[in-house]
Nucleic acid binder design. Structure first.
Length: 437
DNA sequence: CTATGTAAACAAC
DNA sequence: GTTGTTTACATAG
């Protein structure tokens, strides 16, 4: 089996291995590496919170030991970023080239804008901002300029990386959506990992999102995208647990395939990590859900008021006027589990199929995907025959049924939940649960 | 309908 | 007050 064969055989059932291995080795030994050792992590969405060092094993680069080669994009690859393309596809193309990271100086340039954040943003977080001690040659310090070119295809200038002096940030296409901007920020970060505050910093420095808004809505949007977009995953801080919050890292899938629309995760994949089930959930998720419920009630209240006003206005002229809001005001939300779509997610996401439990050659693709033409949509990457319905096992009957997660009726969900996989989790802590089956 | 941005509720920290 | 999750809604295409 040659490399191409082994690559195509990975489709669906197993994510593409790091292509640096492809370029660096001509043997098949890489097929089981590096993911074998971190099998539970090969589908990043399967984790709620991944320990900082546990996930990528030999592929992951530690901020403190730059002895490994993380994935990043060459200028050529980045230049092919779809600029205004639809988010229905991953933003950047799959990357198959590896180069050493450019380390982003997270501190010095951001101070001038610190007031925007109304928070203390000193250089206390330097996980990815420090010099690359392990690589003194500095040969890869052009990374960010590549990013700049990528996101600003029409702008050929800009060497942002080494000696930027402020205004060259125009090289970044600031009109890109949040998800992609976050992606860019993380992509150039050491280990593709940043903390929230430094993502804020990056936005202040490299985008207009912060300056264009007098509110903190842009921060909310960043958090929203981090939470909702499957391209981003939380990881623990490597050492200091006292740090507030998690670090955010690009998933392996995002590194391979780019960031995808945040929308796609909103309803169909209510939680991108998909580890929720009947198990007690992380409090924050529960709180978020509660907030959502409350928000929905509030919205219904508002809507009711609007409709009331509407009917009061229409009472004399058009008594039977149809109001599109009417039905929503009469809609009752049944008592439902907070996360009815878990099973949906579970069955639609390859996370819940163990690629190691399913022989790869049991379900070969109808036609091998050529190298570089791998399926990018994780929803479409299934370990069974591509001829099967993508949603055979899914409570969500079709991809178009991507609407509100609120079930039509509790009975429906009850029935559907019976289809749930027999999930077990090992590890008691909410942050350490691991999907094992 | 999809993608995106934004607001907001909420709980934990 | 910050962080993270989630829902709702508005808008553009």
């Amino acid at each position: 089996m040659n490399v191409e064969d082994s690559f195509s055989a990975q489709w669906g059932a197993q994510p593409a291995f790091h292509t640096n291995n492809v370029s660096q080795h001509n043997t098949n030994s890489h097929i089981l590496s590096p993911f074998t050792a971190a099998s539970k992590d090969i589908y990043p969405y399967g984790q709620h919170s991944i320990s900082y060092n546990a996930s990528y094993d030999d592929s992951y680069i530690s901020p403190y030991s730059n002895t490994h080669c993380p994935r990043s994009f060459t200028a050529m690859e980045l230049a092919s970023f779809p600029h205004n393309s639809s988010m229905s596809e991953a933003y950047p193309p799959a990357a198959y080239h590896i180069e050493q990271p450019k380390h982003y100086d997270s501190g010095s340039e951001a101070e001038s804008n610190d007031h925007l954040m109304q928070m203390q943003m000193h250089d206390e977080y330097d996980y990815y901002g420090g010099p690359c001690n392990g690589e003194q040659d500095g040969t890869y310090y052009g990374h960010y300029s590549n990013m700049a070119q990528a996101s600003a295809p029409c702008n050929g200038m800009s060497r942002y990386g080494s000696d930027m002096s402020g205004e060259e940030e125009a090289a970044i296409d600031k009109e890109q959506p949040y998800a992609q901007l976050i992606y860019l920020a993380l992509l150039q970060a050491d280990g593709h990992t940043m903390i929230l505050r430094d993502i804020y910093k990056w936005f202040i420095k490299n985008t207009d999102k912060a300056t264009a808004s007098k509110t903190k809505g842009w921060q909310n949007s960043i958090r929203h995208n981090l939470s909702m977009n499957g391209a981003f995953e939380k990881v623990d801080h490597p050492d200091e647990d006292s740090r507030k919050g998690f670090m955010w890292r690009l998933t392996e899938q995002a590194l391979r395939e780019g960031v995808k629309s945040t929308t796609r995760y909103r309803s169909k994949h209510p939680n991108k990590r998909g580890t929720r089930n009947q198990q007690p959930q992380p409090q924050r998720q529960a709180s978020g859900a509660k907030g959502g419920e409350a928000a929905r009630r509030a919205a219904n209240l508002k809507r009711s008021k609007r409709v009331l006003e509407y009917y009061q206005r229409q009472a004399r002229s058009v008594p039977d006027a149809f109001d599109p809001n009417h039905s929503t005001t009469t809609t009752t939300y049944p008592p439902s589990p907070y996360y009815p779509s878990d099973t949906d997610f579970a069955y639609n996401d390859p996370t819940h199929f163990s690629p190691y439990a399913i022989p790869l050659d049991l379900f070969p693709p109808a036609a091998p995907y050529p190298h570089g033409a791998m399926l990018r949509d994780p929803d479409l990457v299934l370990p069974h025959s591509p001829a099967d319905s993508l949603f055979t096992h899914s409570p969500t009957p079709s991809s178009s049924d991507d609407g509100p997660r609120t079930p039509l009726g509790q009975g429906q969900w009850t029935a559907e939940l019976r289809l749930a996989p027999q999930c077990e989790f090992q590890g008691g802590g909410v942050g350490s649960q691991e999907y094992i089956g």
